[in-house]
Design a binder for these strands. Structure first.
Lengths: 200, 200
DNA sequence: TTCAATAACTAGACATCGTCAAGTTTAGCC
DNA sequence: GGCTAAACTTGACGATGTCTAGTTATTGAA
């Protein structure tokens, strides 16, 4: 193990390098640019090297989606931190901003995560990572619910609204509206959740 | 032109046969089962025959998506016809039932239409077909709006809600809940639109 | 009716892709 | 130092999108 990075036969941490390469390929060339061979190329290994870490392309996709869910969760949490936690409606709006921002900044990754591509949910990281985002979405709904059933309804309402809006925005035009315009349009559409309790 | 369908060198209507074959492939094998060569095989022509009708796989996908939007629109209209037009809230619920039903019955087609696959919107049929569904969604929102701006907001709200719910339902588990369960869950989540006017 | 022009399709080829099988190199442990 | 197992390379295979060239059928005009 010399100090200089000699062309060692062993990569060292190929698994995470492939995930990172995959994220980059998605960003640069969209869904179809993510191939095992290209990811191997970016990571600087031979075309068959990924097989030792990912049994198939579906496995690599699943791992990348898992990484995406972590970034996704972080994006929501980042926006949530910017607002006062004492205003639950503002917290929901902030989380949705993080949701939309993530999708605009990582459209192909968002499509991979939610777009119908076959993924392996049993692969532990994917289940765990999407669970984190699920938790965040649940937490922001807690102030609006009195029991498990109303929590479930609120979470589904918020999640459906922001996810539907985001998906349709991405599907409709590839030249997105400016980020701020998208978020403004979403917030204008958003109903006043604080009045929902009395609507039953 | 004999009466019997002799194995003519000319297929006759290959373009629509390829679209139909594509829909079948999607239904049977999901997104990744749709290939130009398989569609050609199902239609009974050589692997390069599709090139005369579709310049690329993306073009075939776009045409199939366009066909999907027509089925999609028909599914909403079919459910709308079953309820009284004098009850606008019930009409919205019916359209959403059609939306969810279509997605459950054609998950891969739904993913192709909305899942981030690159499509050619300029290809006339796709724009026109998705326009029909857009019109239907607009029409059911008319009773809830007073001007163009409120119509836009209502359409975006309804569309985002039902689209988000449907997408998340498809993404979460491949073994769907029973259709009736999914629709019931959606309708329980759905806010009372008739009260929305006064919420501004 | 005949025939030429054009459209529809076939056959073959190429690069790229996922995946498998077999070797080769390295790391870690005794 | 040497052995074992993991990490990686090389080479191959079938499938895929797409291109080129050739073949067949339809059509429209003479």
């Amino acid at each position: 193990m010399t100090a200089s990075t000699k062309p060692s036969h062993h990569h060292g941490n190929l698994r995470s390098a492939l995930i990172e390469a995959g994220v980059q390929l998605l960003r640069e060339g969209g869904l179809e640019a993510l191939t095992l061979r290209k990811a191997a190329g970016v990571a600087g290994v031979s075309h068959a090297a990924p097989a030792h870490h990912f049994a198939s392309l579906t496995n690599l996709r699943s791992a990348i989606a898992a990484a995406g869910f972590e970034i996704f969760d972080a994006s929501m949490k980042c926006e949530i931190k910017k607002v006062s936690p004492s205003n639950p409606s503002e917290v929901v709006r902030a989380a949705c901003r993080g949701y939309i921002l993530f999708a605009i900044e990582n459209p192909a990754l968002f499509s991979l995560m939610f777009g119908g591509t076959e993924l392996i949910r049993e692969e532990p990281p994917l289940g765990a990572s999407s669970g984190h985002a699920y938790e965040t979405l649940t937490n922001i709904c807690l102030p609006f619910s009195t029991d498990a059933k109303s929590l479930e309804k609120m979470r589904m309402l918020v999640w459906s609204l922001v996810h539907g809006f985001t998906s349709l925005m991405l599907a409709q035009q590839k030249n997105f509206p400016l980020v701020d315009d998208a978020i403004q349009q979403f917030e204008e559409m958003l109903p006043d959740f604080s009045k929902f309790q009395s609507m039953e």
